[in-house]
Design a protein around this nucleic acid. Sequence first.
DNA 1: CTGTAATATTCCGTTGACGTCAACGGAATT
DNA 2: AATTCCGTTGACGTCAACGGAATATTACAG
Lengths: 151, 151
Amino acid sequence: MGTIVKSEKCDDEIFWRWFVTQRTYTISDLTSLFDVTTRTLRYYEEMGLLTPQRRGTQRLYSERDRVRIQLILRGRRLGFSLEEVRDMLSLYDADPTEITQLREVIHRGDEKLAQVEEQIRELQAVRKELLEWRGKMQQTLASKMKGEQQA
Amino acid sequence: MGTIVKSEKCDDEIFWRWFVTQRTYTISDLTSLFDVTTRTLRYYEEMGLLTPQRRGTQRLYSERDRVRIQLILRGRRLGFSLEEVRDMLSLYDADPTEITQLREVIHRGDEKLAQVEEQIRELQAVRKELLEWRGKMQQTLASKMKGEQQA
DNA sequence: CTGTAATATTCCGTTGACGTCAACGGAATT
DNA sequence: AATTCCGTTGACGTCAACGGAATATTACAG
């Protein structure tokens, strides 16, 4: 991990812009950053979710790749399949030239959005049920403790 | 599917209460009700998520089973594993006699709750990003259409 | 220059969540 | 008695998403 600290003395605008945009990562940088294995990152690449550059045979991940990994992992945590994640990433990738294509991609985005919102609603229902359950359990606990005290 | 309509003439309280609480379902009732296969329901049973009664060799699902299936399927939609779903169901099952056990189960519930809330937050972040993306795309679309009109 | 730690590729294994197929049981209808 | 329609139990197949070992190359610190 190229240990570059910000304020060395080269913190002029130009360098900093270079640092932020051109910063690259080795595969192990990212495995330790996100706590995943190299196998996982290579698999994501195999599935077409990542396309890091190569320096010879070695992979060189860009800032963009890093962000994509972050998005992929969040998607996985939320229960999306890699295929679904790829669909969502393709939304951000797309820079459609034709208006019809543009409309179509917006439409696909709207569908995903609706799906996400539905998922939020269901999760809130789960949350509500858990809270109600918790209330009842607390009550049970309180009454039990009262009984305990009297005995 | 025993086609029992409500208002036949036997809709007195007692019968209705029996109907609602003692109603049973065959496996195919439930597969058509939830659009899952028999394999799925048997698998859930194999994994200890369901324990339907038996009439001879046939499974007889109760109202409680039906509700559990509903919860399981919602959990799956939300990206929980069957194991996680079982944990959550066990919360509702538990009727702990000892106070320490009671505290422990409440604690587990709180952990799940925290997890659910974190998941909601992440989903809302996804939603926000999608909305921002949509805004930009709309803008692109608008400017493109303007150009189109002039040409 | 040389060892050794990091990477790459390849290939087989595993786990979760089912699908699928064969072989059969029992009730009901014809 | 034969057919039809659920339903059952194995047992094996499958697909996604990696795990892990073996082997072969680099890359770079001393």
